[in-house]
Design a protein around this nucleic acid. Structure first.
Lengths: 342, 342
DNA sequence: GTTAGCACTCAGCATATAAGAGTGCTAACA
DNA sequence: TGTTAGCACTCTTATATGCTGAGTGCTAAC
């Protein structure tokens, strides 16, 4: 629904001001912000209507107005200004991020931390979801007589490892056999294609030797599984305590975030390039006082994950969104760089 | 300094009760706890003396008493009962922990999480400090034309990796040369012995080929460095918000913990088997309202790290200490298992 | 449609009062 | 000399009261 030009201006003024100060905004203040083009009484009339329409609300009968979630939504969709990052700021972020670009996980931890610091909110991101990437290399690293480490590297730069304890001493034969099996069945295969049927095939083809090998083959399957599921990275949760509107539910909120599983699923479902989720628009009631801004990044043209923030609904959307967008593009670029030289 | 038997009983009663309820404890309550062996008036006299001696204090002129830090210290050192874990509880913990025992870091994350859940505090631990362990294996995993992954495994089961970007395409010659260099200079060497002079030696012996190799050699050195320094693991920080005595400084506290560097150093210096640090006994003022209980674990007889908790000073020391001790022994045992088969 | 003016509402603050918990002290007791 | 009963006193907590100021809704005039 479209509001009148003047209502737009008033709503924008209220939201801008409220984001800035956190105090309810009165008609006089708005009149001043609009250069007294109309008097405060007129503003009052308009604001009363905006209340009825559900864009504003009053904490108490006679105080200024604050935006409702509907108000924020309207503001984000139509009213807010678009800012650009200063180029020196962009440069600074780029430098910081590049210093951690050697591994995807480190990169996303860094990205989340940068966002947390930049925004005063919690920084959040998901590691690249790799179901289309293939296994690049499988290596065994013997540790002890019966202990061996299985290392799996994917074409997207992920490296995962797992220690495997065997029931029998590890022989050179076994290792050689494993490398043969790996070359035949794993290398060049999509991580998402390492599933039960394939494993059974392998076991069958091995015959009597299958038993000793089973642990190693399963380890590879486990690692492949880990590679397909993207992981949640959260940094700067403590920042959320800074926002007094979140304090009341700080415990629930932080506990929820720390758990991560639910959140992780939620992020996986997102598919727009930029998503702003305000208050109760969030599925989980732990987030009903929070907003989430996420921007997805792509690796080699393929949507791979997201970076963003979680903060209070009262948040400077106009300034933060460009930062988050910029960072997501940067993450995509750096991750593509790691991979592209293939 | 030794107190009279009766003062001991009274102090113990006050601390026990205060830990339980969080409310100041009055003379009448204490009299009841001691089965009215003496009247409340007598208790009052004794409590007044305990105040003068610095073991108790009054939040306001006329309220019950609460323990001072000195009081807690005395209680922990001499008064508190010793509990034992129920054997089914021990079994439950053992099972949980074993499920994550494949890698040292996962194990300690799990241990911290268990402690956090068990105690309602933040669980904390350090990964094994490995300066005496030796490099077991160094592997190269090619990723792209100019990108290669360096993997380092230590005898203690640690596995670290780093992506290395080269200026020139990676050739088989280079890889072979690296493996020769590694076999001659790294394998079997203590991680703490990989330092600048050794690197210079290697560079010198390589002559003109040193340039291409430098990145790889440096990567190994970086990884060795990472192995020597133990890492801090923190779980369940959100639990701290449950304790109202910490709420006032929750932001500072969580920020401090999240940073970790300082804390990490502090933990490294600890050398007693069990350490209880109460309030201002902590070096950092962010922790002056907190207590820390740490128990060190040993891997193959060698002190390697610690596990424990951080919580408010008002905490059930008597019940938590046995849990923490038990967990530290368990961690040591599981880590030794991973390593022993060498 | 806009504005000035005014009565009204309500949060926030300060002050006053009462109740209750617990103390310190004194004097009597064993 | 150590212990106890009794009592006045202190201080927190809760509740009630009044005041102030910001901001409103409404009405009447422009």
């Amino acid at each position: 629904m479209e509001l009148s030009v003047r209502k737009n201006k008033i709503l924008a003024a209220v939201v801008d001001r409220y984001i800035l100060t956190g105090e309810p905004v009165g008609s006089k203040t708005v009149a001043a912000m609009l250069d007294h083009a109309v008097s405060s009484a007129t503003i009052r009339n308009e604001m009363a209507e905006l209340c009825e329409l559900g864009y504003l609300e009053q904490p108490h009968t006679s105080s200024g107005r604050i935006p409702t979630q509907k108000g924020y939504r309207y503001y984000v969709d139509r009213l807010m200004g678009r800012y650009e990052l200063a180029s020196d700021e962009m440069y600074r972020i780029e430098r910081q991020l590049e210093s951690a670009s050697s591994e995807p996980e480190a990169l996303l931890i860094k990205a989340s931390a940068i966002l947390a610091e930049l925004t005063g909110c919690a920084g959040i991101s998901t590691t690249p979801k790799d179901e289309y990437t293939v296994i690049k290399k499988v290596e065994l690293v013997p540790i002890g007589k019966k202990t061996i480490m299985v290392v799996l590297a994917t074409s997207s730069g992920l490296l995962k490892s797992k220690v495997c304890r065997m029931d029998v001493p590890i022989t050179l034969d076994l290792i050689e056999l494993f490398y043969n099996v790996a070359a035949a069945n794993f290398i060049g295969v999509r991580v998402s294609d390492i599933h039960a049927p394939l494993l059974q095939n392998i076991a069958a083809s091995l015959g009597e030797k299958a038993f000793d090998m089973l642990g190693l083959v399963n380890a590879v399957a486990d690692l492949a599984q880990i590679c397909t599921s993207s992981e949640l990275v959260l940094e700067g949760e403590a920042n959320l305590l800074n926002h007094k509107e979140l304090e009341a539910n700080a415990l629930e909120l932080l506990t929820f975030l720390q758990d991560g599983d639910l959140l992780s699923k939620m992020l996986a479902e997102r598919n727009s390039q930029l998503s702003v989720t305000i208050g109760k628009e969030n599925v989980f009631k732990e987030l009903e006082n929070s907003s989430m801004i996420l921007s997805s990044y792509s690796v080699l043209g393929q949507r791979a994950g997201s970076v963003g923030i979680i903060g209070p609904t009262r948040i400077d959307y106009a300034r933060l969104i460009p930062s988050i967008k910029f960072l997501s593009q940067l993450v995509g670029k750096l991750l593509s760089d790691v991979t592209e030289s293939d």
